[in-house]
């Protein structure tokens, strides 16, 4: 029952921040809204689980988890432990076999999933880039319906790139010429310019050199603030300590 009721108000909340032409009269509802929103975790996983084909065991054992504003969470563990499974589930790229996800206390209706992903952005280990320049790639998200209310802002992008030590000339380079580290920086800036509330990072630095690792970490630090949250999956315990306040280890589908 509560699922259907809660999902009704979802789009208004999500659409608010992107609404163009906001006036001063909107300030009061915004404060009320902010107060209401902060009462809830950003993402809440309620009894979610996922298993492989029937009888072959769990990919993710039943999990209850709340990700609150200001949370920096790292997950380590052996490969095949279900770290990516959990992250993809939180990004709603895969469906749980049971349980549900809530965003700011509200269930997420099918048609609002793109909106949810605007707020909760998943970064894959291997960045997928479009054929074209770095700037073409950065402009791409704005061609999607969900970002129709906002526009590509070169200045904001340049500020982000600065954190990763990339000069203006980086924008004109062709995506196919980029090194692994540069590609990951591009993928990250492409997501961060959209101001997501939650970042889900799936071993973003697994195959990168130390300098690129530093750049990626600096970018994420620059984006983070107390209203936001991140989950960083890493194979490197030292990095996990560096990038997070709370660390979990995942083994055989169980988060500990």
């Amino acid at each position: 029952m509560h699922v259907a009721n809660n999902s009704v108000g979802f789009p208004a909340v999500l659409a608010w921040s992107a609404k163009p032409g906001r006036t001063e009269h909107d300030a009061i509802p915004l404060m009320q809204e902010t107060f209401r929103l902060n009462q809830f975790p950003l993402i809440e996983a309620i009894s979610v689980s996922r298993h492989d084909n029937p009888g072959t065991g769990w990919l993710l054992e039943t999990l209850n988890y709340a990700l609150n504003p200001g949370d920096r969470v790292a997950i380590t563990g052996p490969s095949g432990a279900g770290k990516s499974v959990l992250l993809r589930l939180l990004a709603m790229l895969d469906a749980p076999d049971s349980g549900e996800l809530r965003y700011r206390g509200q269930a997420i209706a099918d048609r609002h999933i793109p909106d949810y992903r605007r707020q909760v952005c998943y970064i894959a280990q291997k960045p997928a880039l479009l054929d074209g320049s770095v700037e073409d790639n950065l402009r791409y998200p704005y061609s999607l319906k969900v970002h129709a209310g906002s526009r590509y802002q070169r200045d904001a992008v340049l500020r982000l790139l600065e954190h990763a030590g990339k000069p203006v000339g980086f924008l004109t380079r062709h995506a196919s010429e980029l090194s692994g580290g540069e590609a990951q920086v591009l993928a990250l800036v492409r997501a961060l310019q959209l101001n997501p509330q939650v970042l889900l990072l799936d071993e973003p630095t697994a195959a990168l050199d130390p300098v690129s690792v530093q750049q990626v970490e600096a970018l994420v630090d620059a984006w983070f603030d107390a209203s936001r949250a991140l989950v960083w999956v890493s194979h490197d315990p030292a990095q996990a300590l560096r990038v997070s306040h709370r660390q979990h280890v995942m083994k055989a589908g169980v988060l500990a």
């Binding site: 992903r117 952005c121 894959a124 997928a128 969900v146």
Partner: peptide, 12 residues
């Protein structure tokens, strides 16, 4: 990879 990238960025 590209399909999921578009979805992850909020694409329908």
């Amino acid at each position: 990879g590209q399909v999921e990238m578009t979805l992850a960025l909020g694409g329908t």
